[in-house]
């Protein structure tokens, strides 16, 4: 199988180095090819499973809960201006 590594990297929001692009162009087809044996399994009319137990999902009340202050919320920001997140200017 062939995989368009550049297209997948774009979907994955990763700017791959040439080295990584080459590595993944070799590895991904063989890995995904190795996984292709699942296509041979007859699953009948079983629906796709997304949750492993028979649980009933319970929702929270839609209540307002006090949280930290703005200072704490921006404490981990790579760059900030006062209590605002700061990002470099980007065009486009």
């Amino acid at each position: 199988m062939e995989i368009d590594v550049k297209r997948v990297a774009q979907l994955a929001a990763l700017k791959l180095s040439e080295e990584d692009t080459k590595l993944f162009a070799e590895q991904l087809p063989s890995l995904l090819g190795h996984f292709e044996k699942i296509s041979l399994v007859d699953t009948g009319d079983l629906p796709p499973m997304v949750c492993p137990t028979d649980m009933h999902i319970e929702f929270r009340e839609d209540d307002v809960i006090d949280w930290e202050n703005a200072e704490t919320a921006v404490a981990n920001a790579p760059e900030k201006s006062g209590n605002l997140f700061k990002v470099p200017p980007v065009v486009g």
Partner: peptide, 9 residues
């Protein structure tokens, strides 16, 4: 990166 790529694919 390898896993994100596999998942995105």
């Amino acid at each position: 990166k390898r896993r994100i790529m596999m998942g995105a694919f």
